[in-house]
Design a binder for these strands. Structure first.
Length: 511
RNA sequence: GGCCCGUUCGUCUAUCGGUUAGGACAAAAGAUUUUCAUUCUUUAAAGAGGGGUUCGAUUCCCCUACGGGCUACCA
């Protein structure tokens, strides 16, 4: 029975979208496109107490920035299964909960929080697993223990209640995970999960199963943290009689902290110096800023690429992939089972690869923006800026670094790398600089070649080895010890600026 | 604690019973670029431990250890 592939990414709007969530979205997207199917976004906002304003918009903006576009759902135009926000689907979940009660798969429970606590304390004290299960349910206030009349009375009276799943006793639940193979759980380790809350909202368990069924989801691709509740979901499909259209499950390995312990969390990013969020996020309550990949200077293509490789690989030597290439190469059976630690170095390397692929035209606006901030944007034309970009491009890993690495093209250096001055400046240097100035002044054509010829001539005259002077010359012209080919820099900043800088060095530098 | 999942170089990973266990990032060394933050070359670096199964195990099974996840009227 070949079904149309339909997958979903179902985040809850409780804060910024974590990078692990982004990867889940990406894998769903890749899988859908690979099989010519649909990828939809559903917002799981059944916990009203955890709603965070702006989170939903943040999630959508993040996915759009990365090019992970959905074919239907929140943020991408509703399809025929609207609404895609669970809070807006609220009325229907009650019917499904009632259906389960009617068929004997669920029951009403009237226990208060205090009574639940008391039960747990009591069981813990006697060293027994504290859970609402096949055994304890007989001691609690629910429609299994209360008389029919009493239940009716409470319901009519408007008493608050939840609906709990009536877990079959001691049953082995097996399912084949697309990534892990067969996994099995025994219901005696599980508890009667709440399906329908006293506030009239379903829990994740009910809502997710009902919606996946109604939206004809063929594959549930989600994080490993869901693996323990998967058997409950399987049982729910059975209870509803939907087992024949139950989606296949694929539980993704988690993204771990770089130092090894625990899954990557919100706090890690800024502590370790790399983002764990796609975009900057300011907490609406605390005003605390969490940094994002976009603002940190990552290119979306690089983020997609590096994320794809955290937990998956194509089995070939190729590492650089466009989104479209990833779609072609992706398959669930090449997703690994074990958690992946985030590697900042590799992330940087990925970004560097994409920065280099950027055209000068694409990079120029970034530099122009920096020039604007330095109020220098009117002093340089676009052609000049582009040439700077082409020279500096391969020296940077992040686009935002370009200003720092190219400042001296626009501003005459005021400070010089002291170590180089200390090491390379000699008594012979002033005379050499004087000769260099004279020679440069005589040049009518100021290009890389003519500059180099004049440079060699002055060196020979002063009996100085190129090795001993080139780096010093660089520092004199740029202020810093490293950079693109020096004579190209000189040619680009031009004859008069080069001479100005030599003269300045002559008068301001001494050992 | 219980249950579940996992375990190959420091990191991401390849290997689907037979390989000198391969690649990439990072590291180290060297070369070139008369600078280096580019490039090139080279080096170092791994099957958690113990039992099986097998002619042969990194690969299959079991145990232990370790890591992680879950254990709410949160998702």
């Amino acid at each position: 029975m070949d079904r149309r592939v339909r997958v979903r990414f179902a985040p809850s709007p409780t804060g910024p979208l974590h990078i692990g969530g982004v990867r889940t979205a990406l894998y769903n997207y890749l899988f859908a496109h690979k099989h010519g199917g649909d990828f939809l976004i559903r917002i799981e906002d059944t916990d009203q107490t955890r709603f965070v304003p702006g989170a939903e918009e943040y999630i959508i903006e993040s996915l759009k920035w990365l090019g992970i576009e959905a074919s239907e759902g929140i943020g991408f135009g509703d399809g025929k299964h609207a609404p895609y926000r669970q809070s807006e689907r609220k009325p229907m979940y009650r019917d499904f909960a009632m259906q389960l009660i009617a068929s004997g798969h669920a029951y009403y429970a009237f226990d208060t929080a205090e009574e639940l606590d008391a039960m747990r304390d009591r069981l813990k004290a006697s060293n027994v697993d504290a859970k609402y299960d096949a055994i304890t349910r007989g001691t609690m206030k629910n429609s299994l223990t209360l008389s029919e009349d009493e239940v009716k009375r409470r319901l009519d009276n408007g008493d608050t209640y939840v609906v709990r799943f009536k877990l079959p006793r001691k049953e082995e639940v097996k399912f084949e995970d697309e990534i892990r193979g067969w996994v099995s759980f025994n219901t005696n380790q599980m508890d009667d999960k709440v399906l329908y809350k006293s506030d009239g909202m379903p829990t994740y368990h009910l809502a997710n199963v009902v919606d996946d069924y109604l939206m004809q989801i063929s594959h549930v691709i989600r994080g490993e943290e869901w693996l323990p509740s998967a058997p409950l979901h399987v049982l729910l499909y059975r209870a509803f009689g939907w087992e024949n259209v139950m989606p296949k499950f694929a539980h993704l390995p988690l993204l771990l902290k770089p130092e090894g312990n625990g899954k990557l969390s919100k706090r890690d990013g800024d502590r370790l110096g790399f983002p764990v969020f796609p975009l900057n996020w300011i907490d609406p309550n605390t005003q605390e800023l969490s940094s994002g990949y976009r603002e940190a200077g990552y290119l979306p293509e690089a983020v997609v690429n590096l994320l794809a490789f955290l937990g998956w690989n194509p089995g070939t030597q190729q590492e650089l992939f466009t989104l479209e290439e990833l779609v072609q190469a992706f398959s669930l059976d090449r997703v690994s089972k074990s958690g992946a630690k985030f590697d900042q170095n590799k992330a940087k390397w990925f970004n560097q690869q994409y920065v280099r692929q950027l055209s000068d035209e694409a990079l120029a606006p970034v530099l122009f923006k920096a020039l604007e901030q330095a109020e220098l944007n009117n002093s340089f034309n676009e052609e000049f800026v582009r040439k700077v970009c082409s020279l500096v491009k391969e020296k940077i890993s992040f686009t935002k670094e370009i200003w720092e690495y190219s400042k001296y093209f626009f501003i005459t250096p005021k400070e010089y790398d002291e170590q180089v001055i200390k090491k390379k400046w000699t008594d012979k240097t002033p005379q050499l600089l004087t000769d260099l100035i004279t020679d440069f002044e005589q040049l009518t054509i100021f290009t890389q070649e003519t500059i180099e010829t004049a440079y060699q001539k002055a060196l020979a005259k002063n009996e100085i080895q190129g090795k001993d002077f080139l780096q010093l010359f660089r520092v004199i012209l740029t202020g810093v010890a490293g950079g693109p080919p020096l004579f190209e820099i000189a040619a680009l900043i031009g004859k008069s600026e080069s001479i100005t800088r030599l003269k300045q060095a002559l008068t301001t530098i001494s050992k």
